[in-house]
Design a protein around this nucleic acid. Structure first.
Length: 279
DNA sequence: CGCACATCCTGTGTGC
DNA sequence: TGCACACAGGATGTGC
């Protein structure tokens, strides 16, 4: 489910929990989570290695090891959980009643870090380096990085003829913005999501850049207050619905002009917008 | 190359 | 209450 702010909050919370720790053993309870890699490739690469850093780029979270990285992608439903011991993890993992679908678990000296995903869309994979991971290599500029400037954004927009919604969801231009926060950004910038990227003038592209940055920053604030509690199997970010202005409001009045919010399909995803004040 | 579409899975909410 | 159906915050591969 998460987009950039949620992943960033997870990274910040995870950092002190795992940094400098060794990984004695990795459990792959659902081999689908490493596909198309084999579970043994993940285990061979990471077991016995030390976690030097927890990093994030776009919606990817990854663990930096001395000579490799472990990427975690949460897709729609992935989440991290923390267990006090392997026995504790195995006792609740994948029991019909508990409903906790642990796909992969990293044993550490202070506890067990688990990647859980009921739908099994998420992936935990091992690579020799960032460059060796195709998904990371193809990622565009991170939306929260200082290099994501209005000037660079204008240049990227000018090079694309696609609707701005499709453009923003394509992670090879700007990385980290997903369906929800793209809709929110267009609403704040008063731009119709069907507009072609190269049709935005200088002031419109500045408006959209500012909207993206502020929407993500606001969501991140919300995601770290309070921060995630990986020990609670049912944890998830609270209060995010309250900051949304247009997402999932089909048929309801626009919070700016009271006209009805529309839902249309773009690139196979739902787009919510106000056709009256977003032009 | 750009683009539309199907696909990977399971859970939840809605309407009948 | 039971059931069918739509839909889900993502990325990738396919065919045109």
């Amino acid at each position: 489910m998460p987009e950039l702010p949620e992943i960033e909050a997870i990274a910040q919370t995870l950092r002190p929990l795992v940094k400098r720790q060794q990984i004695p053993y990795i459990h792959v309870l659902h081999p689908i989570a490493t596909k198309p890699q084999s579970p043994s490739h993940l285990a061979r690469t990471a077991e016995g290695q030390r976690i030097l850093a927890v990093k994030r780029r776009g919606k990817y979270l990854y663990l930096q090891l001395p000579n490799a990285i472990i990427t975690l992608h949460f897709k729609l439903d992935g989440q991290l959980l923390w267990f006090s011991s392997p026995a504790n993890m195995l006792a609740v993992a994948n029991q019909p009643v508990s409903g906790v679908h642990v796909d992969v678990a990293f044993e550490l000296s202070t506890g067990v870090l688990a990647f859980a995903d009921s739908r099994h869309f998420g992936r935990v994979q091992a690579w020799d380096s960032e460059q060796a991971c195709p998904a990371l290599a193809n990622l565009g500029i991170d939306a929260l990085s200082t290099e994501f400037t209005p000037a660079l954004f204008a240049k990227l927009l000018a090079a694309s003829k696609r609707p701005i919604k499709d453009f923003l969801l394509d992670q090879s231009h700007v990385a980290g913005v997903g369906n929800i926060y793209s809709c929110e950004s267009f609403w704040h910038a008063k731009l119709n999501p069907r507009r072609r990227a190269h049709s935005l003038n200088a002031s419109e592209s500045r408006r959209l850049h500012k909207a993206i940055v502020s929407v993500l920053a606001r969501a991140l604030e919300c995601c770290v207050h309070p921060p995630p509690d990986f020990r609670d199997a049912d944890w998830w970010f609270q209060g995010l619905e309250n900051i949304l202005r247009v997402y999932d409001r089909e048929g309801k009045p626009c919070r700016r002009c009271r006209n009805e919010i529309k839902r249309i399909a773009q690139g196979g995803r739902s787009t919510y917008f106000c056709a009256h004040c977003q032009r």
